[in-house]
Amino acid sequence: MPVSDLTDSRAATDALLGTLRQEGWRPRAVSRFLWQAADRSARQAARRPRALAQVTALHCLLLARAGQQRPGRGWVTASWALGVLHLGLLEHRDRLAPADVLTLIRANLPATAVGSSRWSGLLAIALDQADGRLARSQGTVSPFGDYADSFADAAFWTWLTLRHEPSRRVRVAAIAAWAAPVATVTALAIGRGRMPERPRPALLRPAAAMQGVVALRHFLRR
């Protein structure tokens, strides 16, 4: 079955990575991998017009909040592109859930004036807790929300730490806490030719403690 026709996002990703590994990561194989991944993403987005419209409308509102600042507009544009390219992770759903919307808002806090306020870290933690509880209570947990949550954490907290944290030790510890899991999962996926099982949050998130440290330091410093 062609990769573009696979309905399970994990199966499609494993098929793409497996083929790439078999072909030895040659330039032609990498080009074909990127083309097939983009083709599947476009097809999955086209099958979910409601979700596509939701992602676009939300990011238009976020662009308005970003104003004319180029970094903020670029951040929101990149977030929109990532959201559209991963709509296949919604699996059986054809629209975003409220929890997904909260996650995307959290990911784009750096593009707004709120991102630099003393409350931004505490707000990000509150949004993180809210979207998780909302997804579980409404039964809308999905790979899209799971991965969007991870991206939102990595994007926001890395940005906040690099931009506002004066302590070099805290910056190094924080970046390692968010970068190490991403690097490990990526390396395993490339080496094995398939996506590894993700560790449970309680086991992979020393970053959760770092969030509290960074957020509190940011709040008290300002």
Rank of each mutant, 00 (worst) to 15 (best):
residue 2 P to D: 08
residue 5 D to Y: 13
residue 9 S to G: 15
residue 10 R to N: 04
residue 13 T to A: 15
residue 15 A to I: 04
residue 16 L to P: 00
residue 17 L to D: 00
residue 17 L to F: 05
residue 19 T to Y: 03
residue 23 E to L: 07
residue 25 W to F: 15
residue 25 W to P: 09
residue 26 R to C: 06
residue 26 R to L: 07
residue 27 P to H: 01
residue 28 R to N: 08
residue 29 A to T: 10
residue 31 S to T: 14
residue 32 R to Y: 03
residue 34 L to W: 04
residue 34 L to A: 13
residue 37 A to N: 12
residue 39 D to C: 09
residue 42 A to E: 08
residue 43 R to D: 01
residue 45 A to V: 06
residue 47 R to Q: 07
residue 49 P to T: 04
residue 53 A to D: 11
residue 55 V to G: 00
residue 58 L to Y: 00
residue 58 L to I: 02
residue 60 C to V: 14
residue 63 L to A: 15
residue 65 R to N: 08
residue 67 G to S: 05
residue 69 Q to C: 13
residue 73 R to D: 11
residue 74 G to S: 14
residue 75 W to R: 06
residue 78 A to Y: 04
residue 80 W to G: 07
residue 81 A to M: 12
residue 81 A to R: 15
residue 82 L to E: 11
residue 83 G to K: 01
residue 85 L to Y: 12
residue 86 H to W: 12
residue 87 L to K: 10
residue 89 L to A: 13
residue 89 L to T: 12
residue 89 L to S: 11
residue 90 L to D: 07
residue 91 E to M: 12
residue 92 H to Q: 14
residue 93 R to N: 01
residue 94 D to Q: 11
residue 97 A to W: 04
residue 98 P to R: 09
residue 98 P to W: 05
residue 99 A to N: 00
residue 99 A to Q: 02
residue 99 A to S: 14
residue 102 L to M: 07
residue 103 T to Y: 02
residue 104 L to A: 01
residue 106 R to P: 01
residue 107 A to Q: 15
residue 109 L to P: 02
residue 110 P to F: 02
residue 111 A to T: 01
residue 115 G to A: 00
residue 115 G to V: 03
residue 116 S to P: 09
residue 118 R to C: 08
residue 119 W to D: 09
residue 119 W to C: 07
residue 123 L to F: 06
residue 123 L to G: 06
residue 124 A to W: 01
residue 124 A to C: 15
residue 124 A to V: 09
residue 126 A to R: 13
residue 127 L to A: 02
residue 129 Q to A: 15
residue 133 R to N: 13
residue 136 R to I: 08
residue 141 V to G: 08
residue 143 P to I: 05
residue 144 F to K: 06
residue 144 F to Q: 05
residue 145 G to I: 04
residue 149 D to A: 05
residue 152 A to S: 15
residue 153 D to C: 14
residue 154 A to N: 11
residue 154 A to M: 11
residue 154 A to T: 12
residue 155 A to K: 11
residue 157 W to L: 10
residue 157 W to N: 09
residue 157 W to E: 08
residue 163 R to M: 12
residue 163 R to N: 10
residue 163 R to P: 07
residue 165 E to T: 11
residue 165 E to V: 08
residue 166 P to G: 09
residue 169 R to H: 08
residue 171 R to T: 10
residue 175 I to M: 13
residue 176 A to N: 08
residue 177 A to M: 00
residue 177 A to C: 00
residue 178 W to R: 14
residue 179 A to L: 13
residue 181 P to L: 09
residue 182 V to L: 10
residue 184 T to H: 10
residue 184 T to E: 09
residue 185 V to S: 11
residue 185 V to P: 07
residue 186 T to Y: 03
residue 187 A to G: 13
residue 194 R to H: 02
residue 195 M to H: 05
residue 196 P to F: 02
residue 196 P to N: 03
residue 196 P to V: 04
residue 196 P to L: 04
residue 197 E to A: 15
residue 200 R to A: 13
residue 201 P to D: 01
residue 201 P to H: 01
residue 203 L to M: 10
residue 206 P to D: 00
residue 207 A to E: 05
residue 209 A to H: 07
residue 210 M to H: 00
residue 212 G to R: 00
residue 216 L to S: 03
residue 216 L to E: 02
residue 222 R to C: 04
